[in-house]
């Protein structure tokens, strides 16, 4: 079976080089591409033209769900389902419900943050085509990479490789899926 192409992988030597290269890839209008660096390069998300993450919204919805659910459950159990006088206070003693409400808001918010982050990053992933490249191993050591996927409408085998070399890559290779 003929191997399908995954995309092109370009290597860069310095954070500055990849920062400038990212801006050019962004401006060239590519959509399905990514950068891989051994440490966070400040401002790279801007250079890549990345939009704001949806994660804060997920966390807010989850936290509100937790808080409202926590408050609602306590209200329902102590007012509707099984009214029970505790220390001579009214059934609906809302101040007593606040700590649980707060904690469940925080818990759900935190769960939303962790699993939302994993979901948005499509993690966990057991295999990725880029791992075919031997050179790519150094993305967690001392090299910087940009990968452009074949499914990008602007992708063209010869032109994209030439483009990546032109914007300062020291080595461009094509990766099979």
């Amino acid at each position: 079976m003929a191997n399908k192409l995954y995309g092109a992988l370009a290597e860069f030597e310095t954070p500055h080089a990849i920062f400038e290269a990212c801006k050019k890839v962004r401006d060239a209008g590519f959509k399905y591409w990514d950068s891989h660096t051994p440490f966070p390069v400040h401002g790279l998300d801007g250079a890549m033209g990345m939009k704001r993450s949806k994660l804060p919204f997920i966390v807010l919805v989850m936290a509100l769900t937790g808080a409202i659910g926590g408050f609602g459950l306590q209200t329902w159990t102590s007012v509707v389902d099984y009214p029970w006088v505790v220390s001579g206070k009214p059934y609906f003693s809302w101040p007593a419900f606040i700590p649980v409400t707060f904690e469940l808001g925080v818990l759900f918010g935190a769960l939303g943050a962790v699993f939302g982050m994993l979901g948005l990053n499509k993690l966990p992933q057991l295999y990725h085509s880029l791992f075919r490249s031997k050179r790519f191993e150094r993305f967690s050591d001392d090299k910087f990479f940009i990968s452009i996927e074949e499914r990008d409408p602007k992708f063209d085998k010869a032109k994209t490789v030439a483009f990546l070399e032109e914007i300062g890559s020291t080595n461009v290779e094509l990766i099979d899926e």
Partner: peptide, 12 residues
């Protein structure tokens, strides 16, 4: 503020 309020409300 709530920590202060709740303990006094609870103790009554």
């Amino acid at each position: 503020a709530f920590s202060q309020f709740m303990l006094y409300w609870y103790g009554n």
